[in-house]
Computed example of a mutant assay.
Amino acid sequence: MSTKTKKDTQMAAAPSGLSQQAIIRAYRQMKTIREFEERLHIENTTGAIPGFTHLYSGQEAVAVGACEHLTDKDFIISTHRGHGHCIAKGCDVPAMMKEIFGSRDGLNKGKGGSMHIADVAKGMLGANGIVGAGQPIAVGAAIACKLRGEGSVALSFTGDGASNQGTVFEAMNMAVVLQVPKVFVFENNGYSEHTGASYGIGCDDIVKRIEGFGIPVFQADGFDFFSIYEAMAKALELSRNGGGPSAIYCETIRYFGHFEGDPQNYRAKDEVRRYRDEEDCLLKFRRRMEQTGEVALEVLDAVDAEVLALIESSVTGAKQAPRPLSEDLLTNVYNSY
C-alpha cells in the first residue's frame, strides 16, 4: 500500500455528504458482491459450476464506487474477473447465478458463463476472457456516446496485468486522439495471474504510463468506497463535459487466487488474512459509519441478513433451473439484423 493510502486511512472520518439511501445502497451493493463471490468459492468445490471462475472478493469498493455514479445509458466493459462489475452496474443477481451454473434461464441463456456475462439493457457490455480486450470495445462505446451527444460515458475496468497489453495502449491513444467520453479504471490488485506487479510492470508506475498518453489520472484508495466514489465524480465531470478520456488508479487486493483452484504459492504467508483484518472495504465502510453516525450499524446488519437471503435463494434457484437442451445449441449465437 502506498504512503498516501496509509495516511488517508489514519485521518478522522468526515460525513460523506451522501444521503442515507445512497449510503445504504452502496453498502448493499458491496455486500452483495462479497457474498455472491464467497458463496461461489464454496459452490465451485462441488463441481456444479462449469468452466473457470475468477472471484472479485476484496475489490468491491472499486466496482461500486465507480458504478454508483452511472445510469443504464452509460456503458461498462469488464474483465474475466467480472461478477462484481456486473452486480455494481445493476445486473440481476439470481439471473447471474443461473448463468454461472449454466442454466438456460441464465442472464445469457447459459452461454456466457462466468467470464462472459452481459446485460446490454443495463449498459453492461460484457465481461471478457481475453486480457485487455475490453478496452478498445469500450472506446467504441465511447465514440457512440460522443456521437449521440446525450452526456453518457463508457467505462472500462483494467487490472495491473492488462495494463501491459498493447490493446490497452492503443485504446488509450485512440481515446485521446478522438477525445471521447471514456473512463479507464485501473485496479492494481498486486498480481497478474501469478506474477507480482512489481516484477511485471517495466516502468514501475502505472499512473505515469497512463499520463504519458495525455490522460488525467485521479488516484484513490482501492479499499475505500468513498475515496473511489469521489475520484469517479471528478473523472466524470471531465469526461461528461467534453474533456475527453480520464482515468482512475487504485491499489487493492483480491482475496482468492487468480482462478478457483489456484494454489497461490506466490503469496506471502498470512497476506490475505492481514488485509481482511485491517483493510477490508466492508469493515472500513462500517467503521466510518460508526464514526460519523450517518447510518446506524443495525441498519447495515439488516442489509447483511437481506443479502444473505438473496444469495441463498439465488443458489437454490440456480441449482433447480433447467439445463440447456440440444436444440438450444445454435440459438442466440449470431445476431440477425
Rank of each mutant, 00 (worst) to 15 (best):
Q179I: 00
P181N: 02
S156G: 15
S16G: 08
A66G: 00
Y266W: 02
F285D: 00
V139D: 03
S2N: 14
E294G: 07
I143Q: 06
P136R: 11
E35T: 12
P324N: 10
G126C: 08
I42M: 13
K6W: 06
Q10K: 09
H80G: 05
D105T: 13
G190H: 06
A309C: 02
N173S: 10
E187A: 04
V315K: 11
G84M: 04
G112N: 13
N128C: 11
C203F: 02
D328Q: 10
E251H: 05
E298L: 08
S114N: 14
L283Q: 14
S57F: 06
E38K: 06
E211M: 10
D304A: 00
D304Q: 00
Y56S: 11
A268R: 08
D72I: 12
A197W: 00
F157Y: 13
S336R: 15
M30A: 02
I206E: 01
A309W: 02
Q320W: 01
G47E: 05
R148I: 00
P216H: 09
G113I: 07
V333T: 12
I117F: 00
G90P: 07
G244T: 08
T331S: 12
E327V: 14
V333E: 12
I248G: 03
F223R: 01
E193N: 09
L238M: 12
E99F: 05
D205G: 03
A231S: 15
N332R: 09
E43A: 08
N265C: 03
G112I: 10
G110M: 05
L308I: 12
E306P: 00
S2R: 15
Q264H: 00
F52L: 12
L155E: 07
I311P: 08
P15N: 11
G102L: 01
A321N: 09
D160E: 12
A22C: 02
G161L: 05
K122H: 13
K98R: 14
A141N: 08
C250G: 11
T32C: 03
K6Q: 13
A88D: 06
